[in-house]
Design a binder for these strands. Structure first.
Lengths: 251, 251
DNA sequence: CGAATATTTGACCGATGTCAAGGACCGTGG
DNA sequence: CCACGGTCCTTGACATCGGTCAAATATTCG
């Protein structure tokens, strides 16, 4: 809501994209890199707390996270908020808005964030010229779907402690891919308010739930973030089996 | 779990697909129809209650619903089940499994159902030869994502009455597209058990919640189905604004 | 008719929400 | 350096929504 978006003139060339240093991402062909270089029209830096996309609007852009964390959410008219998912480096933002008329959710930066900017209007040329990238886009959308399925299962059928354990184990998994080139892993940059709005719980109950996990030695809560001490223990509490694919695409 | 899948020799030609009679779907070019005709390798009929796809397996097929209803779900090891979404004619089943290694959810028939069968192994040729259809596939995946977002908001942040109202208003919307050629609309073919497993509620509380909606004259509960009497009233209770696009693609 | 599955209802319980208040920490301005 | 205000985290008391248990009543299908 607050925070400023500012253009950054320094710009990373796609041919030298730092994300590619991370072995979690698949390699591109030279022609694909060439296409993406032209598809990319700039970079956007936003402060923590800045709103990147707004539900109900029609965005001219599509983004990929280069560095930082953000989250997607929806709100009801009376202010109740549901966080739908988090975005980390390599994730695409606004694909849904690029294909439909209007954005159906909003996106906010959780940390200072750097985004690659693509022109929505050029997306069809991607489908026309690069079947491999088209496949990747569909893959990315299907992957998001499968994450949302997990979240639905969690919110619908797990207890508060199980839900919290699942969420933190899940975010810990994603955190592995957060550093562009294997730099030190930090804590998960969320407040308990974010956790509450993700799990569908109240803030007070979220706090009590997180303290239980901390008492069991599974996590440690920091100033505004969470350090995961025992990922396997969390996954066991939630009875969750991560299925992160070995190589994921990005654009 | 029970129920038999049986092959049906009678087969609908894509060039004469009954779904196309429904103005809700977009038109195909001749070359697209031609491609889809070859992509389609058969039809599958399944009884109500039959399992169509199973979580954890690797399916060789991909389906589009020609007629009938089904639902996608996940279960925890102790048996807790979460229904993720419903499928109606025109919806694709198994796209996620076609792109990833394994299915991350199961699919079950709610009514007797007819499916068009596609070969998973040929999907890449779709991306190579038909940018329009590739775009449509991504659109379909993004649309599913946006529906799951709505469900998450609902389960996470709405009360039991609001959730139930949302779900029934939502299914009523989808029901509009259920009849291949504008035949009479029937009730929504779910039991209260399905409603409970979709909303993340117990069966008992679901029953009491549905009776409240019935007492307000918004719905009528039938033998094993729900008749929506006042869609706008339901949407108002849930504070939900449907955003069904005017023309949706299908394959 | 009998078995299996759905729906309905009441009594009671417990997980989670609400309210209220205090403490910890941070950034800002004096 | 300190005071101050704003977030965030923490905790206890109490309220309530939704869960569990139990049992009765349809309804369908053999």
């Amino acid at each position: 809501m607050n925070g400023e978006n500012r253009k950054n003139t320094a710009r990373v060339a796609c041919s030298n994209c730092p994300l590619r240093d991370n072995p979690a991402f698949r390699a591109f062909t030279a022609s694909e890199v060439d296409f993406v270089s032209h598809f990319k029209t700039g970079e956007l830096n936003a402060d923590a707390g800045a709103t990147i996309l707004v539900e109900g609007t029609h965005s001219a852009h599509l983004y990929t996270v280069l560095d930082g964390w953000g989250f997607r959410y929806k709100i009801l008219e009376d202010g109740r908020r549901q966080i739908l998912n988090y975005v980390v480096p390599g994730d695409m933002i606004g694909l849904q808005g690029a294909l439909m008329e209007e954005m159906q959710h909003s996106v906010e930066a959780l940390t200072p964030i750097t985004l690659c900017v693509f022109e929505r209007s050029r997306i069809f040329s991607l489908f026309e010229k690069h079947p491999g990238l088209s496949y990747d886009l569909t893959w990315i959308a299907a992957r998001e779907e499968s994450i949302l399925d997990e979240h639905l299962l969690s919110i619908g059928r797990r207890s508060a402690v199980e839900r919290a354990a699942y969420l933190l184990a899940f975010l810990q998994e994603r955190e592995k891919y957060c550093s562009p080139s294997g730099s030190a892993r930090g804590p998960i940059p969320v407040t308990q308010i974010h956790v509450a709005d993700t799990l569908g719980l109240s803030i007070v109950h979220t706090n009590k739930t997180l303290r239980k996990l901390a008492a069991r030695g599974l996590i440690r809560w920091l100033d505004r973030g969470c350090e995961v001490l025992d990922p396997a223990g969390l996954a066991a509490v939630a009875n969750w089996h991560p299925s992160e694919p070995p190589k994921r695409p990005f654009i």
